[in-house]
């Protein structure tokens, strides 16, 4: 209920499954728990001495032996993926129990799974489950280069022609609108990929007049409209103190390192708890969340510190810090 439980686990195997993707198998001391496809675990990490957690989708359906995660090497990572990627066999890690926030619904007449890059991870277990239950589905999987299509061979073996691969470098692209148009009216689409893909699929889905709740997506793999770059945050409520957010970190972490606390929870732009008021902004805001509506994004009066960034220049925020209320001295110790 409150707080989060972490259990000790031991790294069993580490293998690179693509030039930039590393598969890590973790065996929890207390045993592997069953989990539905689409689940993830949190791993406790320490970033620059500050304890933190990172979430990773569990790859494949449970096998009762180990949890498998796939970690992408991200040049602009906040450091979390670097710490997790550095794990080697025999090392210990603290992990949460599996959590399921991206669950596969049963009983739909048809399913379309769409993966972009590392976004394939939660969809592998879904494809396995749909295959096992004999459901009608296809998996569309795209990446920049063919080598980056991690797990493609295993998926091909299981899915045959139900797997379709798309490679940017080879000029093959998912024709989103046509794919959606061809689906059963009650079909569901499961999506995990970078923001550009997410936006395009969501727009096409709604444009096709389909129900919003039939489009399910996972938001770990987040990239914005702009390449991340360094920017400055000015906290109006902290005497205008300035903080630099480096290219490879987030506003949330950069502020935390300087002792500026924000509230947060999901860290992937969903819950809205880390929303800060934007008082002024030079340049543009690169909103990378799924919490704000289109019109809220356009107003630029608030932004989510966990994922969103300023592009070119500085942003002035209200971090929400206020002094504690004063306590009246006059009434102290009076007997009522």
């Amino acid at each position: 209920m409150s707080g989060e439980y972490f259990a000790r686990a031991t790294v069993r195997r580490v293998v690179d499954v693509a030039p930039d993707v590393r598969l890590i198998e973790l065996v929890p001391d207390a045993g592997v728990a069953p989990y539905p496809p689409g689940s993830h675990i949190d791993i406790a990490v320490s970033i620059g001495g500050i304890p933190d957690t990172r979430s990773y989708s569990l790859v494949g359906e449970p096998d009762g032996q180990a949890y498998r995660i796939a970690v992408k090497q991200v040049p602009d990572s906040r450091g979390g993926s670097r710490v997790v990627r550095a794990l080697s066999p025999g090392q210990e890690a603290l992990i949460s129990a599996p959590k399921s926030h991206f669950e596969l619904a049963h009983g739909r007449p048809e399913y379309l799974l769409v993966a972009g890059g590392i976004g394939i991870t939660p969809l592998i277990g879904m494809a396995q489950a749909l295959h096992r239950h004999g459901r009608s589905f296809r998996l569309l999987y795209s990446a920049r280069t063919r080598a980056q299509l991690a797990f493609a061979d295993e998926l091909r073996e299981l899915l045959g022609e139900r797997l379709e691969l798309f490679v940017d470098a080879e000029g093959t692209r998912i024709e989103v609108a046509a794919r959606i148009a061809a689906l059963d009216p009650d079909a569901e689409l499961y999506l995990c990929g970078p923001q550009g893909m997410r936006d395009a699929v969501a727009r096409a889905w709604l444009a096709a007049g389909r129900r919003a709740d039939r489009l399910r997506f996972e938001t770990f793999a987040s990239g914005g409209r702009f390449a991340p770059q360094e920017f400055v945050v000015r906290a109006a409520d902290l005497d205008g103190a300035e903080f630099v957010v480096a290219r490879e970190t987030t506003m949330l972490d950069a502020l935390a390192e300087q002792g500026v606390e924000l509230m947060w929870d999901c860290r992937r732009g969903e819950c809205g708890l880390c929303a800060v008021s934007v008082l002024a902004c030079e340049g543009e805001l690169d909103h990378r969340d799924v919490f704000l509506s289109e019109s809220q994004r356009a107003q630029c009066r608030t932004m989510l510190a966990c994922v969103s960034r300023a592009v070119g220049g500085a942003v002035t925020i209200d971090s929400g810090f206020r002094s504690d209320p004063e306590r009246p001295r006059s009434v102290a110790m009076q007997r009522s």
């Binding site: 707080g3 989060e4 972490f6 406790a44 500050i50 304890p51 933190d52 957690t53 949330l252 972490d253 935390a256 390192e257 300087q258 002792g259 500026v260 606390e261 947060w264």
Partner: peptide, 8 residues
């Protein structure tokens, strides 16, 4: 600290 994380 994890639940507070990053309080610096």
């Amino acid at each position: 600290e994890q639940s507070l994380a990053a309080e610096g």
